[in-house]
Structure formats: C-alpha cells, structure tokens
Design a protein around this nucleic acid. Structure first.
Lengths: 205, 205
DNA sequence: ATACGGTTTAACCATTTGGTTGACAAAGGT
DNA sequence: ACCTTTGTCAACCAAATGGTTAAACCGTAT
C-alpha cells in the first residue's frame, strides 16, 4: 500500500506535463509514464482528465496567489513593498518556470475559470493596496496615480519578461545566458523604474 | 472554380480557430466547418495541420512585427515615439484581440520557432533603438538606463494588460466594461508613466 | 488460513482525429 | 468534341486518445 504517495506522484507528474503543454496538448499516457504508473490509476484517483487538470490548475494558482498578495496585502511601506516584490518574484519564477504562463494561458482559454478562483478565501483583493496608494498620493509621497494602473504596471513589468521570454530574447537579440543576466538585473531595476516614475520630487519632506 | 478564394477562406477560418484554441486545441474539422468547405480541401491546399498552422502563425507575426518596429526603427524623438506606440497599440489589439497571446503562447511551446522568424527580412532589430537611447542618456535627456531594459519595459507595459486580462480583471475586481476603460486610459497613462521614470529632471535645457 | 478492503495492472472499448482515396465536376486549352 | 488540369466532396482509414473493466495483488483484521 503506497496509497497517499501515488496520488501526489500523479499530481506532480501532471503538473509538469500540463504546465508545459497545456490542457489540450497534454496526454494522459504521458502523465502516467512520467509518474511511472498505469494509466488507469489516473482515473482511479482523479476520475477524468478535466478533474486532474483542475487539481493542477488550482494548485498552481494557490502558489501564485501569495506572491500577488505581497503587493496587495502586505503592511510595509509602498516603496519597500515594490522593491521586495520585484526582487522576490524572480526567484519564485525560477523555481516554477512554467507556472505564470500556464495560469495566464489557461485563464485565457477558459475565462469562466476565474469565478471558481475568486470564490476561494485567499483570493487576492486589491482593497488595501488602493487605500495605501491614495494615502501616499494625499501625503504627497507619490504623484497622482490610480492604484489599478499602478498595480497593473507592477504586475506587467514583473511577469511579462518571463511569459514573453522567447519573443523578447529574439527581439533584444541575446542568447539565453545574456537574457538571464538581464532578468537578474531587473530584480532591482524594475523597482527603481517604478519608484522613479511615481515618486514626488517636489516635496522633499 | 472559385480557386484563389477558397484558399484565403481557409486561412481566415484557420486564423480564428488557431488563435483562439492554439495548435493543440484546434481541430481540422472545426476549421473546415468555419470555412464552409470539405475537410479534404484543407489538406489539398495546405498538406497538413502543421503547415496550415505555420501559415497562420507567420501571418500573425507579420502583423505584429510592424507594430514592434514602431518602437525600434522609427526616426521620431524618443518620448514622442513612446507616446505614439502606446497609443497605437491599443487600437491594434482591439482589431486583433487574440493575436499577441497567440504568438506568445505558441512561441513558448515551440521556442525554436523563433529561428524561422528571425531569418525573415523585416524581423525587428533593436540596434537603432539602442543608439537612440544611449544618445539620449549622453545628452542628459534621460537618466541612465540600458536600452534593453527600457525596451522590455515598454513592451511589457503595453502587451501584458491584454494577455493577462482575465487574471488582472479578477485581481483588480472590475467588470469587462470598467476594465476596458482602464485600458483606454492606458493609451496615455503608460507613456507618461515611462517618460516620467526616465526623463532627467535636473537638466532643464 | 481466510476473507476483505483498497490498490494496481493488462487488455479492451468507443470515439475522435489527422489524413487519404477515388469519383466527379468545372474550366481551359487544343 | 476531347483531353488535361484544377477544385470539391463523401466515404474511408489507421492511429491516437480518454476512459472502462475484470482480474490480480497485497497488507490486515478476523
């Protein structure tokens, strides 16, 4: 009886395959091979491809959510928060290289999926961040900007370089190694780029 | 004999299906249905799913490339160029909503694809942009920044809000209509955000 | 030892899917 | 008129694919 072990073995194999090939491109047999078990076991534990996929997807999102919460519900100072998030995010994605792309991609092909996620307890909420931004604006720490726009900017600058890697690597015309250096530099560059844009230079208090 | 017409009819149908469902998710029968022709005709004109897909992909990229060239090889002033690009890009994507996501996605699943694209004559090159940025830095118009980083920032801020729409819409917690308003505002907001970040305030010459 | 529960497998099944074939129609040249 | 080329289709095919089944396996409680 390996019981519990097999189930997670399957989930791990499924994560790899689904995240690399997507729902449509993944093959149940390939997942079974990677988990080194009989294909029937996939159905024994997860009933169907759809359900196995949903387990993988939910698990992936649950890994991503706390990352996003770092920008949204952390209590630290706005600038510090931006710095910490941009620095942490790179290391996170290096550990899970296919994850952001996977989540984005499947969400695009299945937009109603988001409803299931939103009902989860720890789904990130932007409310606290909005207050923090409007406070910073009122106190003259930063130039007027809508929290939504700032949030979208932060996320875009951090996530897209990974999702668009093949395209950007070709456009910037560098090899894998140089691109990784560029990404490494972004750990600090992006935060300064953002802060530089929003900080209010007229008030030096 | 409708000849020439059928071929483009197929390509148009294939574009829609492939861009929405990706290579793996697309079905030849569905493309034939959308083109209102017999499935055998798909193979008569394009031999295989792979070749039909490549035709669609290349055509999609050829639409995207000139957009990117606007940032790279246009002769206008740096700030003006950034403003024009961010403004134009939104209208472009509204016309081709699935296109950027499609290109990014298939490039991720097929990174060697990029080689075929790079050999094309009008593949965007960053060289001119690099010169322009380093000149602007030398002349004190903008703060020191590497052209590659600036380029990645511009592209990220403009493309990601579309690719990540389902995710961002949920995180920012707004409906389709409000999100579109946010995107509309970004036509100008993004350019100012970028320029604000890089422009040198100390030299007012 | 035996019976029982959950676990695992090989073999199997129905459907889907990309691709092919052969007949036939519609021009177009001679 | 007749033959060749091109375009179109219904029917067909083999392979792949998600899913099922019935039997075997195995630890454990009786």
């Amino acid at each position: 009886m390996k019981t519990e072990n097999t189930e997670t073995e399957i989930l791990n194999a499924a994560k790899e395959i689904f995240q690399q090939k997507g729902m449509a491109g993944a093959r149940m047999q390939e997942i079974a091979d990677k988990a080194q078990i009989n294909k029937a076991l996939l159905h024994y534990y997860y009933r169907s491809k759809q359900l196995l996929f949903e387990a993988v997807f939910k698990s992936a999102f649950m890994l991503l959510a706390p990352q996003l919460n770092k920008v949204l519900n952390d209590d630290s100072d706005l600038f510090e928060k931006i710095r910490r998030f941009t620095e942490n995010y790179v290391s996170f994605v290096i550990k899970h290289p296919y994850l952001p792309n996977f989540v984005i991609q499947e969400l695009n092909k299945n937009p109603e999926f988001v409803l299931k996620l939103q009902s989860e307890k720890n789904f990130p909420s932007i409310d606290k961040f909005k207050l923090q931004v409007s406070d910073a604006v009122k106190q003259g720490v930063i130039m007027p900007i809508e929290a939504e726009q700032l949030f979208i900017n932060i996320i875009s600058l951090n996530i897209f370089p990974f999702i668009g890697e093949p395209l950007l690597k070709a456009l910037v015309n560098v090899d894998k190694e140089s691109y990784n250096k560029i990404l490494e530099n972004r750990k600090t560059e992006v935060a300064e780029f953002i802060i530089n844009s929003i900080k209010n230079n007229k008030n030096e208090n």
